[in-house]
């Protein structure tokens, strides 16, 4: 659906040059919600703005739905851009236009006829739950409502792709969740491909199918959210996840605490229906192995439940090893720490 090939973006000239993206390639499938996470200055904003060429890459190609946008002339690009909706951190609504007229705006740009505009806008007002507010101006709306207008406006021209530029970063946690839910609904309803950038792991975890971690203008890690989230490889990814889940210090102390006999600390990850099963206690039963739970999390990735336990096993060395092997055989992910 979206192919970014060797994108390089350099700002400025001469000694003031700054590279925002360096030979970055990325492939996004139709109908998926793809997240890009990175710190500010990592290049994620430049990346998403390159997809509809609000920012023109210095080098490289941008393909959306089989069309190479980077090769288009100005007018052809304007036509193609109608198939790419975009929402923004600061909403970017027309302050001089009502909710209704903001949503109608892209349709009027495209020269859609009046009756069709009315039908479409009403449908979208209903979709985002703003029927009652159609005649208000953006200044009279809350942040969440403004973003709903932004979403309705972005969907007005029936796009194939929706770009979300830090769309929830200016919103409070509850509103963020309601907007994320709305994005997920429209993703399923219209099979719309969504690309979002964020600096919050929570956003990725809530709605994304796949994620790419951007750092220093390049992708350092990418894959299914569950895989990247539960088994991060790159230091930057780990940092994002750590800030989201646990406090390292006290946990380290618990693992290193003085104890007699053979011990082994492991991180056990449960995914999907395994999360709710009693696999751990079944496996240790009768092995003579005991365990202490040092840390535990339970949450969901998109709508898939997962749990993570940090456990210290105590007992005969061989019995502990057998237990670990059996846990793996039961479909749990076991990672030895200490």
């Amino acid at each position: 659906m979206i192919e970014l090939k060797n994108l390089t973006k350099v700002y400025g000239k001469g000694s003031k040059q700054a590279t925002a993206l360096s030979a970055l390639s990325l492939s996004i499938k139709k109908g998926e919600i793809f997240g890009v996470i990175g710190h500010s200055g990592a290049g994620k904003s430049t990346l998403i703005r390159c997809i509809n060429l609000l920012e023109r890459p210095t080098q490289g190609e941008v393909w959306v739905d089989g069309v190479e946008l980077t090769a288009l002339r100005k007018h052809q690009l304007q036509v193609q851009r109608r198939k790419i909706g975009m929402i923004f951190q600061h909403f970017n609504l027309l302050s001089s236009a009502t909710v209704y007229n903001n949503i109608a705006f892209p349709l009027r740009l495209a020269g859609t006829e009046g009756a069709e505009i009315e039908r479409k806008v009403k449908e979208l007002l209903f979709l985002v739950g703003l029927e009652e507010h159609w005649n208000k101006y953006p200044a009279e709306l809350s942040g969440g409502q403004k973003q709903r207008v932004g979403i309705a406006r972005a969907l007005a021209s029936d796009p194939d792709v929706l770009l979300c530029d830090e769309a929830t970063s200016a919103l409070d946690p509850q509103t963020t969740d309601s907007i994320l839910r709305l994005l997920m609904d429209i993703n399923t309803k219209f099979n719309l491909t969504i690309v979002l950038i964020t600096h919050e792991m929570h956003v990725i975890q809530s709605i994304c199918d796949r994620v790419a971690v951007i750092h220093g203008g390049g992708i350092v890690e990418q894959g299914e959210v569950a895989q990247v989230f539960l088994k991060p490889k790159h230091e930057v990814t780990k940092e994002f996840i750590r800030s989201e889940t646990q406090s390292e210090g006290p946990l380290r102390e618990a693992i290193d605490a003085v104890h007699t006999g053979y011990t082994q600390a492991v991180k056990i990850t449960f995914l999907g229906h395994k999360t709710y099963e009693s696999t751990l206690s079944q496996v240790v039963q009768g092995t003579g192995v005991h365990f202490a739970i040092l840390h535990g999390t339970i949450s969901t990735i998109k709508d898939v439940p997962y749990g993570q336990l940090i456990v210290r096993f105590e007992g005969p060395a061989d019995a502990v090893q057998v237990t670990l092997t059996e846990l793996t055989a039961q479909g749990l992910d076991v990672e030895v720490i200490s």
Partner: peptide, 15 residues
């Protein structure tokens, strides 16, 4: 006029 609003319009294919 807010630059963001102009960009949003550009992104929607406005001439």
């Amino acid at each position: 006029v807010d630059r963001g609003i102009i960009e949003a319009a550009q992104g929607m294919g406005a001439s």
